[in-house]
Design a binder for these strands. Structure first.
Lengths: 111, 111
DNA sequence: ACCTTTTATCGTAATATTGCAATATAATAA
DNA sequence: TTATTATATTGCAATATTACGATAAAAGGT
């Protein structure tokens, strides 16, 4: 079918999955790492940095912006993209909590 | 095209994206949370827990097992699934490092 | 041997994603 | 105004994902 049955899951689970899905493409990982690393907030010379077409990069940037990982401000002819600090902190916390749950729960080591 | 150009990215970026992609479905998030929470290593009564068909759950479990999030041991007629501690730690560390990179890098707050 | 239970796999339909060329839009420069 | 530059959007082809019914495989019970 190809359609995810979101109604079966909690909004937290759907949100978590959506977030992870956005991270689930190497180009988007690369874009985020580039924005984290670059001291200046470079715009779409990501097109030259990564080897993908301009339309493809633009599409990935939109997905990252829609969920909130990044923000873009118009700067003359070009657009300045950078990490959205609030969302980054929020997502970092959510992922951290997800993984840490395993350690804060008492395990009965079966298997 | 639908095919990801993995050759453009580092193996670390591809690995990170693959890992995130596996987490990018609410059913798989729910399965992991269930396994983390359940004191006993319950098997496929996940089928009853979530509202998906047996074949669908089995498919999600295979993906989780293939990348290493979980492990399954045959126990009579049924299979005992549980979190793979080594991989869980590894993935937790990788995600943590990914998000923390933002904080360990000096920012020049543009935008 | 036969039945039952549990899980895996196959096949398939519906939908989603990826990538790009072509084109549109927006802002500045000449 | 016209040209230029940078980015976004549209349309489409190729491929991937999701979900499930049907069926197979594996193990234990009778």
């Amino acid at each position: 079918m190809g359609i995810t049955k979101t109604d079966l899951f909690s909004s937290e689970q759907n949100a978590m999955a959506h977030m992870a899905k956005v991270l689930g493409h190497p180009a988007r990982i690369a874009i985020l790492q580039y924005l984290v690393k670059s001291s200046s907030c470079i715009n779409g010379d990501l097109v030259h940095e990564l080897g993908l077409a301009q339309a493809t990069i633009s599409q990935h940037l939109r997905e990252l912006k829609e969920i909130g990982f990044i923000q873009g401000t118009i700067e003359g002819v070009s657009v300045c993209y950078c990490i959205n600090p609030e969302k980054w902190a929020e997502f970092s916390q959510l992922f951290g909590a997800f993984f840490d749950d395993y350690y804060t729960t008492q395990k009965s080591n079966c298997c």
